[in-house]
Amino acid sequence: MVLAALTWATPPSTSGPASQTGNQARDPEGLREANRVLEEEIRLAAHPQIYLLLNLPDRSIVIKGRGIELRRLPISAWQAIEERAMVGVFRLRARPQVARPKATPLDDPAQDPIELKDMPVAYELLFDPTLAVTVAPPFQDRPWLWAMGLMRDSWTKTVSWIRSTAAPDENASSPCLRLTLSVEAAQSLAWSVTDGMPLVIRRTTPQ
């Protein structure tokens, strides 16, 4: 009974404390995973491009180029489905849509630019090979958007479940990530990503 209560009361799969990274670096599995990510990074950093490193043990998203950290965005919380499948390089299909103002002749261009605050705070990023990353603000910041994010996430899970049930042998495991980011971090991520941008994920539980 106590076990059941403990199990139920604990938020599922929320990442551990930041100190987990240090522990992971000392254990062989953690080192293997860190080395795998470094190998991916070396390949990406050899080319003139900006890429993303999603570091789940560290709870951070790092924008990088040539292996250099350009910006770090903290992750408040995350949940993953099929985390073990999150290996290799994923490429963003399309950046989040934003309504671009139309410039009109003789207008002051400073009047209506797109700014960081215009970027969405709840959205879904789809990658190839198949990976869905949903981003939502913490409940206390934007309850409505948080709930919307949860619904979108549930829908993704349901579709994934239906597909895996209908065709158990074909692509049964579509990895999904739900990230809870502060409003500023969510908008910064939406701003910084570009079509085709590569993503590498450092996992907590390598298999």
Binding site: L3, L6, T7, T10, S13, Q79, S173
Partner: peptide, 10 residues
């Protein structure tokens, strides 16, 4: 679909 093992349980 994967179920997440609970940390306290482990």
């Amino acid at each position: 679909m994967k179920c997440f093992p609970s940390l306290p349980l482990l």
